[in-house]
Amino acid sequence: MSQHPDSPARSNSGSHCGRVWVIAMHAFTQLVRMKVFYFLAVFAVIAIGSNFFDLPQHTGPEVSGIAVLSSIKSWSLGTMTLFSVVLGIVATALLLPKDVEDRTLYTILAKPVPRVDYLAGKLLGVLLLVFVSLALMDVLMSAVLQIRSSMILNQQMDFAQGRGWSAAEIASLRGDILSQGANASLQGAVFAVFLRASIMASLALLISTFSSSTLFTSIISFLIYFIGHFQADARAIFLESGAAGTGPVTRAISLVVSLVLPDFQLFNVIDAVIEGQAMPLLILAKLTAIGLFYAVFYVIASWFIFAEKEF
């Protein structure tokens, strides 16, 4: 890291990584100093608070508390999704204009730093921030779930033994409670949340290369985020339009939406995990590949625009 950027060793691919890493760490530090971690405090209050809420339940004492575990997962992952997307978009939207405002950008670009390295570094910094935030939230959520599962398990075991339930019935109840607790699929769902936020951050990076303000980048990114959840519907309209008798205009619009916007519905597998289903590793690998495809593609697209930009 201490090597001068003009040195010949910088021309190899290893130094590319080094430069990207330096810029990423700088972006990460910059964002941390902007106190974006305050988001985490809000999440902590919500997550810990939900642990102690005695939420109204529709069912009797034989399943008391089990539904609360599902609620904690739903609230926590919902909050994670919201904060990670907001963090990803806003942090990325802030970085380029702030570097221009602080004139840091001119200092960096005056050196032999390829613009693609600069962009990739900035994005990596944001992704690091999102990852660290999500990891902390995940630890908090898993701890809350673990504590609450143990409490419910003890309470339900006492209830079942008091009622003279058979060993098989008690084992079944135990299985029901544990399946709603913190497990590997839940960690997979948190990773899917990270992937969705990563796509949004890389998309925000692309927009910020031609945008005139942070506000514009943020608004357009949020709009694309919501429209991206309809992309699968548009694709279905396009693919099934022959049978449905759809007109050429609708067909063309649905095609453009399908080709240009990312499909965020794929990441709704998180809902299935909250509902207690297991997420296979292969599915997670495919989602990761798609997330990586988008991130790399948007960085390259950003580079094409940013390379021509005059400062």
């Binding site: 699968a232 989602l287 798609i290």
Partner: peptide
């Protein structure tokens, strides 16, 4: 890029729906 990923995403959506992972 959209043309490359469109069939892949359509196929993954179908796979996820079949597995009950996507409503």
């Amino acid at each position: 890029a959209g043309a490359v990923r469109l069939p892949l995403e359509a196929s993954l959506t179908g796979e996820l729906r079949a597995a009950g992972l996507l409503p």
